[in-house]
Design a protein around this nucleic acid. Sequence first.
DNA 1: ACATTATAGTTAGCCAGCTAATTATGTCAA
DNA 2: TTGACATAATTAGCTGGCTAACTATAATGT
Lengths: 174, 174
Amino acid sequence: MWLIMLQLRDLPTQEVLQRFAQRYPAADVTAIASFLMLLRVATDLSIALDACLSKHDLLQGRWWVLILLMREADLTSTPSTLAEKLGVTRATMTGLLDGLEQVGLVQRVAVPEDRRSVKIRLTAAGQAKLDAVMPDYYTRLRLCMQGLSESQRNDLQSILGVIDQGMSAWDFNQ
Amino acid sequence: MWLIMLQLRDLPTQEVLQRFAQRYPAADVTAIASFLMLLRVATDLSIALDACLSKHDLLQGRWWVLILLMREADLTSTPSTLAEKLGVTRATMTGLLDGLEQVGLVQRVAVPEDRRSVKIRLTAAGQAKLDAVMPDYYTRLRLCMQGLSESQRNDLQSILGVIDQGMSAWDFNQ
DNA sequence: ACATTATAGTTAGCCAGCTAATTATGTCAA
DNA sequence: TTGACATAATTAGCTGGCTAACTATAATGT
């Protein structure tokens, strides 16, 4: 999961939004404000995550790969599957795996049944790296979210679900 | 505002989350699920935005610059200010402005009072470009958010505000 | 069986961010 | 007034995504 986005430090004032809405009648002021704030908070979270991971000599892309491998019962997957789950191209996955293999966190293993394919296995060192990173990450995330009640967390997830549904509208007219 | 992020197509199942929480006691399952969904929806939105802009031959970074200029009463700003508002380095802003000036959407104007500085002005062509893009963007955004009631939009914004507050927790222990 | 097509992974080269260093100008204090 | 420092913008070079092209292997249809 890669989120690369400008930070938009400067959200528009209500006044500016009104001015834009006047020029562009299609504008829905509360939709725009919600959208911008969503992008901004997500970006801030992603940047904070980067900072946390960098203290453990990890980049976000490589870290997600380790997590995806740990999710598997046999700590094993293939480059194609990992690429699809992470939403990156297979070419990008090759690069991520090169980096991880070079520092010994994963291992490429030949697959005799299909000689085109390769198995990727989380090594003991890879698991150890996750055991070092995850408690730190989870602790920060807990603190970051502790201001939200359980019902607010549910609200957030259902609201995000509605937006996700609505996303199909983006592509309506091509 | 730049959001560059992996897509994380594959959110963890409840079962996987439980397994991770067992290994890492610091894990807060509902916090993690909310966080991941937030990142994912924001990424999807950012990608959809890219797609919309590319139909108008614009990249997200350059488009935000045009918007920031249009927010100004005199359609004018400086590279430093724009960089700060967009959350990018001044070096990056130089590149964005090079691109925009080359296609005539903005103009660099010398500042006699401080010869180190340069004014950036939105040109008529730049305004025309926005007039072409914004209705399209606003229409898609309206459709995308139309499933949310006014109170849900308020909920979303206040929830995001709480998370933003909580973000300071990330850096608590260095 | 064998030519066509599909699939897995990699390589080569592009692109738009980034950091660090550079140039030019302005500010301030001894 | 001049030396030290601060600020504005730029340049040079790095990085980690991307697309497109390539190699190797497997599957499929006549």
